[in-house]
Nucleic acid binder design. Structure first.
Lengths: 297, 297
DNA sequence: GAGAAGGCATAACCTGAGCTTGTGGCCCTC
DNA sequence: GAGGGCCACAAGCTCAGGTTATGCCTTCTC
């Protein structure tokens, strides 16, 4: 009783061709193949669909009925293939990207700009969020791609998500002008200083590094804006740490930058759901972000 | 690249069930079966359609696209099955019947009336036509069923059409009141009479019978109305032949009816295109006509 | 009318699509 | 860390769905 939609399309071909043999020729099949499909369809339908006459075949009332439906099915199928082709050829599509703020200011504009230039009909939605929220957005399906970072490895809480490393960068100590470096004592030399913290994740890393050096930092100021941070440091209001890319993007002329291995390295990467890198629009954006990362490295 | 509509429906089942395993359970299949169908569909589509996450699966942009189309396809299929069921259960349908005039006055009303009573939603279109035109109508597809007759066998020119014999009837000589019968001389005794002819086919048969008896009849009057014919005969305006059923339907009190084997027999039957007797509505009407013929015989 | 041509169905065969079972990996939950 | 749910992958087996071969039908042509 259940109709096979493929046979509906075959019925349509036969009706258009006017005979079973003619339909077989257009399908590149033999006549019995088509004949058997029709016989099966008629059995499933419970009524004759075509009357076999000399020189061809004419639909019955039931046949006409199915032909009307088959036309709709064929149209839907064709439209689906068209839309699908648009997606795979990047003539359509949408990517929802979540990125952490400093990336949004550097990598993202370059990548999104390049994608828009190459494929103007692919739309990119950008949202700023720190790694934990970004991961949640991707995991829940609210975003397709997240630009996130972690210290000394991928961020925690990846779950089933896929991590694609983009670049590692050093984390530097940033101190006011004229201030002497920490020397061999390392971070411990700054135990008494006021500290400027960034986002939650960065501050956590900062605190961990300090505690590894034997003290708990006094975090007096908090901002994740690396321009603001440097302005505060330049005025002597505190010390901080900044990843190399933030300093590459903007470097206040007065601050001192001190490389320190004990501050670890920041790992920047893309995160998406497994398989999402097969989605054409997402893959294209991933490629552009990777290119941008390679260019800035 | 060509999408298999069956897999589209499977995709739909999976999306509705929320996971491949759940869809497999509702389909009564195993999980790998569904998994393979999806893999093939994604290959044909050229893009991932579902992202596999923990606890189930969520459609991609391409997947959503196909799901919308699949909904339409499923709706069409369902509607087609509904309409088909209506046809096979005689809750809908149409039969176009062509019948020769005297049948239209006797068999047809009974049969069509019975069909209408049993299946009020099946519509019957009736048209009157003599056998040759009736056969042409069926052959060309303008009619589904024809009630026709032939003398001493099925009518000529059947071609590929199917003949279903309904009944045979005697053909009687009809002469004015008081007139002596033909006796052993047979038809030849009426060589000098005026004859009343019916339709073309009937007159042809009349002429053939007379010529077999050695003369060519003078056909003075022509009408295919058996009431009119008998009125003419009753007034002594001519002689004629009439099939038994015409005389059973109406018998003028004054005419004499003389059975004559040499007038042959008239064969009444149904004609349809091969396979048309499988069409539910047509089959139902055929059955009613046969019943009516059996009852009148 | 005999033959050729074109249509369809049927039968028998054979390959591969599409099921199955079995297994392993991954994630989450308890 | 044991258990359960999800998935993909691999290998096997069965039958759907092709094929070729054949026969019958009607129509057209000479």
């Amino acid at each position: 009783m259940a109709l096979d939609p493929r046979r509906l399309l075959i019925l349509r071909d036969v009706a258009r061709a006017g005979s079973i043999s003619a339909a077989a020729r257009t399908l590149g099949w033999t006549q019995p193949a088509v004949s058997q499909h029709l016989a099966r369809l008629e059995r499933d339908a419970g009524a004759p669909l075509l009357l076999r006459g000399p020189g061809g075949v004419t639909p019955t009332e039931a046949g006409e009925l199915l032909l009307r439906r088959a036309d709709v099915v064929a149209a839907e199928l064709h439209a689906a293939e068209e839309e699908l082709a648009a997606l795979t050829q990047l003539r359509a599509g949408r990517v929802r990207l979540v990125a952490f703020p400093s990336a949004a200011a550097t990598l993202v504009p370059e990548a999104v700009g390049a994608l828009a230039a190459a494929h103007p009909d692919v739309t990119v939605g950008l949202e700023e969020a720190e790694p934990p929220e970004a991961l949640a957005a991707v995991a829940s399906g609210d975003a397709d791609l997240a630009l996130v970072f972690g210290y000394d490895g991928p961020p925690a809480g990846l779950g089933p998500l896929v991590w694609q490393r983009l670049l590692d960068e050093a984390v530097h100590l940033v101190v006011p002008p004229g201030r002497r470096g920490p020397g061999r004592r390392g971070l411990a030399a700054l135990a008494a200083d006021d500290w400027i913290g960034g986002c939650v994740r960065c501050r956590t890393h900062l605190v961990e590094c300090c505690e590894a050096a034997g003290f708990t930092p006094t975090v007096r100021h908090t901002t994740d804006d690396y321009v603001v941070v440097q302005a505060l440091v330049a005025r002597g209001l505190g010390v901080t740490v900044l990843p190399a890319s933030a300093l590459a993007a903007y470097r206040h002329p007065d601050v001192q930058v001190v490389p320190m291995a004990s501050l670890g390295r920041r790992h920047v990467g893309l995160v998406h759901r497994p398989g999402a890198d097969g989605v054409p629009a997402t893959a294209a954006l991933v490629a552009e972000v990777r290119r941008a990362a390679r260019d800035t490295a």
